[in-house]
Amino acid sequence: MRFSRRSFVSGTAASAALVILPIPVAALDLSDDVAVHIDDILDGRDPREGGIELDAPAVAENGAQVPLTIRVDSPMSEDDHVTAIHIIATANPAPGIGSFHLTPHLTRAEVFTRIRLAEEQEYLVIAELSDGSVLQAAARTAVTQGGCVT
């Protein structure tokens, strides 16, 4: 049986609708510059794994525009809310993707944006909470056409 490129691409697009499974951050092999970038965010704090749901394609056709929804389990109350969410690439020319700043005026700790992935890779999300604790999660997205990080 032969597959044309077109049928392969449409097939991968259909499978891309799935929520990707989280990867333990401890399982990642991080380069020095990524590790330094993460350490700067953590500032000595010890992150807990989980509490973060990442919704992104398992396969992105265009690495320059990868949709990413981040949901952190938080009541977003004055006393208990997410204050920041950082996104970090592990195989881009630079690790920083961006940082959200949240307030209790938000009804939920759910944000959507689009990110650049130069190639297939894992990316990390670190959430800072108002009580000073930190959560982390990672996911992997394959890229059909690399996001030219112009």
Binding site: A64, Q65, V66, T69, I87, A89, N92, P93, A94, P95, G96, I97, G98, S99, F100, H101, L102, T103, H105, L106, T107, R108, E110, V111, F112, T113, R114, I115, R116, L117, G147, V149, T150
Partner: peptide, 29 residues
């Protein structure tokens, strides 16, 4: 900003995509 107060913000770094777009949810006041 809502009613003069910053309610949501984002710092861009190199991995932010062109034509930046955001979706977020606010308690209207």
């Amino acid at each position: 900003r809502m009613n003069g107060e910053t309610v949501f913000a984002y710092d861009f770094e190199n991995g932010s995509a062109a034509n930046p777009t955001f979706t977020f949810f606010i308690r209207a006041a």
